[in-house]
Amino acid sequence: MTTSGIAPSAAPPVARLIEAFHRLPGIGPKGAQRLTYYLIRMPRQEAEELAQAILSVKDRITLCRTCTNIGEGGECVVCADLTRDRSRICVVEEPLDVAAIERTRAFRGSYHVLHGVISPVNGVGPEDLKVRELLERLKGDQVQEVILATNPNLEGEATGMYLQRLIAPLGIRVSRLARGLPSGSDLEYADDATLAHALEARTRLDEPRPEPGEE
């Protein structure tokens, strides 16, 4: 979309900023205008801090050389933490998935970020993901388990099955996150696959639950 198309009557610098916001994911033309006019009213110091924060992310952030997560100076926070269990690798699609799992505080292992998912209809194959880097990490005998935490949809499952097929010959245990009913949901609206998975992976209430990461 052109600048004049979004804000035909705005001054050129304003129109340029509206267009820049509009290119961001999830921001439509109205949202882009709201953000722009909010910034115009913002004190100069705050605007400078925001601009500096954006530039600093672009200048200092790199992919972690071990897990390809977002990090600084070639290393992410998790890989820099010497107390993490390096024998377990949790494979996720995106850096945001690392943040989601970290919020649970239930996993003390390390991660590997694929930066996408195999999507045949969109022409995204394994060579477009960080699969080669994952296989490099599995050389040697340090890693005992790979936990596949791709999204529970067709493309996430296909990616998981593909990785499982690659890793199986290495003799490393491959597991994946359990599927089932989300907390706070309504059984009536659950789809057949979710309900079937929940039934298959049902748990006994008269046995103590294992701690995360226990055999």
Binding site: I118, P120, L135, Y162, L166, P169
Partner: peptide, 24 residues
């Protein structure tokens, strides 16, 4: 047809693209 690339990849045995890395 975009999906043919992945279909060919999974139909191969062994998975040749990464075969050097997965050989025990």
């Amino acid at each position: 047809i975009r999906s043919t690339a992945f279909l060919d990849e999974v139909s191969r045995r062994p998975v040749s693209k990464f075969v050097d890395q997965v050989r025990p």
